[in-house]
Amino acid sequence: MSDAAPQASGSVPLIRLRNIVKVYGEGGLAFKALKGFDLDIEQGDFVAIMGPSGSGKSTAMNTLGCLDRPTSGEYLFKGVHVEDLDRDERARLRRRYFGFVFQGFHLLPRTTAQENVELPLLYRGETNAARREAAAKALEAVGLKGWEHHTPAELSGGQQQRVAIARAIVSNPVVLLADEPTGNLDTQRSEEIMELLWKLNSEQGITVLMVTHEPEMAAYARRIVRFKDGLLDSDTRNEPFMLRRAARSAPVQPQEGH
Protein backbone atom coordinates (compact mmCIF):
# COMPACT_ATOMS: atom_id res chain seq x y z
CA MET A 1 0.00 0.00 0.00
CA SER A 2 1.41 3.39 -0.97
CA ASP A 3 1.18 6.52 1.18
CA ALA A 4 -1.43 7.87 -1.23
CA ALA A 5 -4.78 8.35 0.52
CA PRO A 6 -7.26 5.51 0.03
CA GLN A 7 -10.23 6.69 -1.95
CA ALA A 8 -13.74 6.21 -0.64
CA SER A 9 -16.58 5.92 -3.10
CA GLY A 10 -20.16 7.02 -2.64
CA SER A 11 -21.47 6.54 0.87
CA VAL A 12 -18.89 3.95 1.95
CA PRO A 13 -18.29 4.36 5.71
CA LEU A 14 -14.85 5.28 7.01
CA ILE A 15 -14.50 1.79 8.54
CA ARG A 16 -16.45 -1.31 7.59
CA LEU A 17 -15.99 -4.68 9.31
CA ARG A 18 -17.72 -7.78 8.01
CA ASN A 19 -17.82 -11.20 9.73
CA ILE A 20 -14.62 -10.52 11.69
CA VAL A 21 -13.20 -13.64 13.36
CA LYS A 22 -10.02 -13.81 15.44
CA VAL A 23 -8.59 -17.13 16.62
CA TYR A 24 -5.52 -17.46 18.83
CA GLY A 25 -3.63 -20.76 18.85
CA GLU A 26 -4.27 -23.91 16.84
CA GLY A 27 -5.95 -27.26 17.20
CA GLY A 28 -7.24 -28.19 20.62
CA LEU A 29 -5.66 -25.08 22.14
CA ALA A 30 -7.38 -22.67 19.73
CA PHE A 31 -9.35 -19.85 21.35
CA LYS A 32 -11.85 -17.84 19.30
CA ALA A 33 -11.68 -14.31 20.74
CA LEU A 34 -13.98 -12.88 18.07
CA LYS A 35 -16.68 -15.10 16.61
CA GLY A 36 -17.83 -13.04 13.63
CA PHE A 37 -19.28 -9.54 13.85
CA ASP A 38 -20.18 -6.65 11.55
CA LEU A 39 -19.58 -2.98 12.33
CA ASP A 40 -19.68 0.28 10.36
CA ILE A 41 -18.10 3.49 11.64
CA GLU A 42 -18.72 6.81 9.94
CA GLN A 43 -16.23 9.65 9.76
CA GLY A 44 -16.62 11.94 12.78
CA ASP A 45 -18.31 9.41 15.04
CA PHE A 46 -17.41 8.95 18.73
CA VAL A 47 -17.83 5.29 19.68
CA ALA A 48 -17.44 3.79 23.15
CA ILE A 49 -16.60 0.08 23.07
CA MET A 50 -17.68 -1.77 26.20
CA GLY A 51 -17.99 -5.29 27.56
CA PRO A 52 -16.82 -7.50 30.43
CA SER A 53 -13.33 -8.93 30.64
CA GLY A 54 -12.85 -11.55 27.92
CA SER A 55 -15.74 -10.22 25.83
CA GLY A 56 -13.55 -9.45 22.80
CA LYS A 57 -13.60 -5.66 23.07
CA SER A 58 -9.81 -5.28 23.28
CA THR A 59 -9.27 -7.70 20.40
CA ALA A 60 -11.80 -5.71 18.38
CA MET A 61 -9.94 -2.48 19.22
CA ASN A 62 -6.62 -4.00 18.13
CA THR A 63 -8.26 -5.04 14.87
CA LEU A 64 -9.73 -1.60 14.31
CA GLY A 65 -6.33 0.01 14.93
CA CYS A 66 -4.58 -2.36 12.49
CA LEU A 67 -2.44 -3.63 15.38
CA ASP A 68 -3.71 -7.16 14.78
CA ARG A 69 -5.00 -8.95 11.71
CA PRO A 70 -8.31 -10.85 11.73
CA THR A 71 -8.17 -14.59 11.12
CA SER A 72 -11.01 -14.19 8.65
CA GLY A 73 -13.48 -11.55 7.54
CA GLU A 74 -13.20 -8.19 5.79
CA TYR A 75 -11.86 -4.89 7.16
CA LEU A 76 -12.23 -1.93 4.83
CA PHE A 77 -10.71 1.46 5.69
CA LYS A 78 -11.84 4.12 3.21
CA GLY A 79 -12.64 1.28 0.84
CA VAL A 80 -9.21 -0.40 1.11
CA HIS A 81 -9.10 -4.04 2.24
CA VAL A 82 -6.86 -3.86 5.31
CA GLU A 83 -6.88 -7.64 5.80
CA ASP A 84 -4.92 -7.96 2.53
CA LEU A 85 -2.12 -5.60 3.64
CA ASP A 86 1.22 -6.91 4.89
CA ARG A 87 2.87 -5.80 8.14
CA ASP A 88 4.73 -2.85 6.60
CA GLU A 89 1.67 -1.63 4.73
CA ARG A 90 -0.43 -1.74 7.90
CA ALA A 91 2.31 0.20 9.70
CA ARG A 92 2.18 2.93 7.04
CA LEU A 93 -1.60 3.03 7.33
CA ARG A 94 -1.38 3.46 11.11
CA ARG A 95 1.31 6.11 10.84
CA ARG A 96 -0.71 8.21 8.43
CA TYR A 97 -4.28 7.82 9.64
CA PHE A 98 -4.34 6.61 13.28
CA GLY A 99 -3.41 8.02 16.68
CA PHE A 100 -3.27 5.90 19.84
CA VAL A 101 -3.83 6.70 23.53
CA PHE A 102 -3.44 4.02 26.20
CA GLN A 103 -4.27 3.64 29.89
CA GLY A 104 -0.54 3.76 30.65
CA PHE A 105 0.82 7.01 29.28
CA HIS A 106 3.90 5.39 27.65
CA LEU A 107 5.96 8.58 27.77
CA LEU A 108 9.76 8.52 27.62
CA PRO A 109 10.72 9.48 31.19
CA ARG A 110 13.87 11.50 30.53
CA THR A 111 12.55 13.54 27.62
CA THR A 112 10.41 16.66 27.73
CA ALA A 113 6.75 16.89 26.83
CA GLN A 114 7.77 18.61 23.58
CA GLU A 115 10.17 15.80 22.66
CA ASN A 116 7.62 13.10 23.52
CA VAL A 117 5.04 14.72 21.25
CA GLU A 118 7.55 15.08 18.41
CA LEU A 119 8.26 11.33 18.25
CA PRO A 120 5.64 10.34 15.61
CA LEU A 121 6.92 13.11 13.34
CA LEU A 122 10.50 11.97 13.84
CA TYR A 123 9.50 8.53 12.55
CA ARG A 124 7.89 10.21 9.53
CA GLY A 125 11.10 12.07 8.73
CA GLU A 126 9.83 15.60 9.38
CA THR A 127 12.37 18.40 9.80
CA ASN A 128 13.33 19.72 13.24
CA ALA A 129 11.49 22.99 12.63
CA ALA A 130 8.33 21.23 11.44
CA ARG A 131 8.37 18.88 14.43
CA ARG A 132 8.78 21.71 16.93
CA GLU A 133 5.99 23.77 15.41
CA ALA A 134 3.54 20.86 15.18
CA ALA A 135 4.32 19.64 18.72
CA ALA A 136 3.85 23.13 20.16
CA LYS A 137 0.44 23.40 18.46
CA ALA A 138 -0.61 19.95 19.70
CA LEU A 139 0.39 20.76 23.28
CA GLU A 140 -1.50 24.04 23.10
CA ALA A 141 -4.55 22.17 21.76
CA VAL A 142 -4.58 19.95 24.87
CA GLY A 143 -4.10 22.87 27.26
CA LEU A 144 -0.38 22.46 27.98
CA LYS A 145 1.09 25.61 26.50
CA GLY A 146 3.97 26.61 28.76
CA TRP A 147 4.66 23.02 29.85
CA GLU A 148 6.69 22.05 26.79
CA HIS A 149 10.01 21.63 28.61
CA HIS A 150 8.75 19.63 31.61
CA THR A 151 9.55 15.93 31.89
CA PRO A 152 6.84 13.40 32.82
CA ALA A 153 8.07 13.33 36.43
CA GLU A 154 7.26 17.04 36.64
CA LEU A 155 3.68 16.55 35.41
CA SER A 156 0.53 15.25 37.09
CA GLY A 157 -1.18 12.10 35.83
CA GLY A 158 -3.76 14.16 33.97
CA GLN A 159 -1.06 16.28 32.37
CA GLN A 160 0.85 13.19 31.31
CA GLN A 161 -2.26 11.82 29.62
CA ARG A 162 -2.69 15.17 27.86
CA VAL A 163 0.88 14.84 26.56
CA ALA A 164 0.00 11.35 25.33
CA ILE A 165 -3.07 12.73 23.55
CA ALA A 166 -0.99 15.54 22.03
CA ARG A 167 1.43 12.91 20.74
CA ALA A 168 -1.51 10.99 19.25
CA ILE A 169 -2.93 14.01 17.40
CA VAL A 170 0.31 15.72 16.32
CA SER A 171 0.22 13.92 12.98
CA ASN A 172 -3.41 14.97 12.32
CA PRO A 173 -4.94 11.48 12.46
CA VAL A 174 -8.32 10.63 10.98
CA VAL A 175 -9.01 8.17 13.82
CA LEU A 176 -8.02 8.40 17.49
CA LEU A 177 -8.10 5.08 19.35
CA ALA A 178 -8.19 5.39 23.13
CA ASP A 179 -7.87 2.24 25.28
CA GLU A 180 -9.10 2.96 28.83
CA PRO A 181 -7.71 6.52 28.60
CA THR A 182 -8.95 7.45 32.09
CA GLY A 183 -8.12 4.16 33.81
CA ASN A 184 -5.22 5.61 35.84
CA LEU A 185 -6.85 8.94 36.68
CA ASP A 186 -9.08 10.28 39.44
CA THR A 187 -12.60 11.49 38.74
CA GLN A 188 -11.74 15.13 38.08
CA ARG A 189 -8.81 14.32 35.77
CA SER A 190 -10.95 11.70 34.01
CA GLU A 191 -13.64 14.26 33.28
CA GLU A 192 -11.02 16.69 31.95
CA ILE A 193 -9.63 14.05 29.59
CA MET A 194 -13.12 13.10 28.37
CA GLU A 195 -13.97 16.75 27.71
CA LEU A 196 -10.74 17.01 25.72
CA LEU A 197 -11.63 13.93 23.63
CA TRP A 198 -15.09 15.39 23.06
CA LYS A 199 -13.54 18.67 21.90
CA LEU A 200 -11.22 16.87 19.46
CA ASN A 201 -14.22 15.00 18.08
CA SER A 202 -16.73 17.85 17.92
CA GLU A 203 -14.40 20.68 16.87
CA GLN A 204 -11.72 18.93 14.81
CA GLY A 205 -13.86 16.10 13.44
CA ILE A 206 -11.50 13.35 14.62
CA THR A 207 -13.23 9.98 14.76
CA VAL A 208 -12.80 8.64 18.32
CA LEU A 209 -12.94 4.94 19.18
CA MET A 210 -12.63 4.36 22.93
CA VAL A 211 -12.55 1.18 25.00
CA THR A 212 -13.88 1.76 28.51
CA HIS A 213 -15.54 -0.21 31.29
CA GLU A 214 -16.88 2.95 32.95
CA PRO A 215 -20.45 4.02 32.03
CA GLU A 216 -19.62 7.59 33.15
CA MET A 217 -16.93 7.81 30.47
CA ALA A 218 -19.02 6.06 27.81
CA ALA A 219 -21.68 8.74 28.40
CA TYR A 220 -19.49 11.18 26.44
CA ALA A 221 -19.76 9.07 23.26
CA ARG A 222 -22.26 9.45 20.44
CA ARG A 223 -22.62 5.69 20.19
CA ILE A 224 -22.08 2.73 22.53
CA VAL A 225 -21.07 -0.68 21.19
CA ARG A 226 -21.08 -3.65 23.59
CA PHE A 227 -19.32 -6.97 23.15
CA LYS A 228 -20.19 -10.25 24.88
CA ASP A 229 -18.57 -13.65 24.41
CA GLY A 230 -16.74 -12.58 21.25
CA LEU A 231 -19.84 -11.19 19.56
CA LEU A 232 -21.28 -7.72 19.12
CA ASP A 233 -24.11 -7.73 21.66
CA SER A 234 -25.59 -4.25 21.08
CA ASP A 235 -24.98 -1.06 19.10
CA THR A 236 -26.94 1.99 20.24
CA ARG A 237 -26.87 5.72 19.61
CA ASN A 238 -26.29 7.88 22.68
CA GLU A 239 -27.03 11.50 23.48
CA PRO A 240 -23.56 12.64 24.58
CA PHE A 241 -23.14 14.00 28.08
CA MET A 242 -21.64 17.26 26.78
CA LEU A 243 -24.74 17.97 24.68
CA ARG A 244 -27.04 17.15 27.57
CA ARG A 245 -25.05 19.43 29.87
CA ALA A 246 -25.14 22.24 27.33
CA ALA A 247 -28.92 21.87 26.96
CA ARG A 248 -29.40 22.04 30.74
CA SER A 249 -27.31 25.20 31.03
CA ALA A 250 -28.90 26.99 28.05
CA PRO A 251 -30.95 30.04 29.11
CA VAL A 252 -34.71 29.65 28.89
CA GLN A 253 -36.16 31.83 26.15
CA PRO A 254 -39.22 33.85 27.18
CA GLN A 255 -42.38 32.92 25.33
CA GLU A 256 -44.12 35.55 23.25
CA GLY A 257 -46.95 37.33 24.98
CA HIS A 258 -45.40 37.00 28.46
Rank of each mutant, 00 (worst) to 15 (best):
D86K: 03
D88E: 07
A91D: 06
L93H: 03
R95T: 07
R95Y: 02
Y97F: 09
F98K: 04
Q103Y: 06
G104Y: 08
F105W: 06
P109E: 10
R110S: 11
R110P: 00
T111N: 05
N116A: 03
V117C: 02
E118T: 06
L121I: 01
Y123Q: 04
R124E: 11
G125K: 09
N128C: 06
A129D: 14
A130K: 15
R131T: 04
L139I: 13
L139V: 04
L139N: 13
L139S: 05
E140I: 10
G143S: 15
T151C: 14
P152N: 10
P152R: 01
P152M: 06
A153G: 15
S156M: 07
G157M: 06
Q160L: 15
Q160M: 15
V163S: 09
A168Y: 06
A168W: 05
N172P: 00
P173T: 09
L176G: 08
N184G: 10
D186E: 11
T187W: 09
Q188I: 11
S190I: 12
S190A: 15
S190H: 11
E191C: 07
M194T: 03
M194N: 08
L197Q: 02
K199I: 00
K199L: 04
L200C: 06
L200Q: 03
N201H: 12
S202V: 00
Q204G: 01
G205T: 00
I206K: 07
M210R: 02
M210F: 07
V211S: 07
V211E: 00
P215I: 13
Y220P: 05
Y220R: 04
R222V: 00
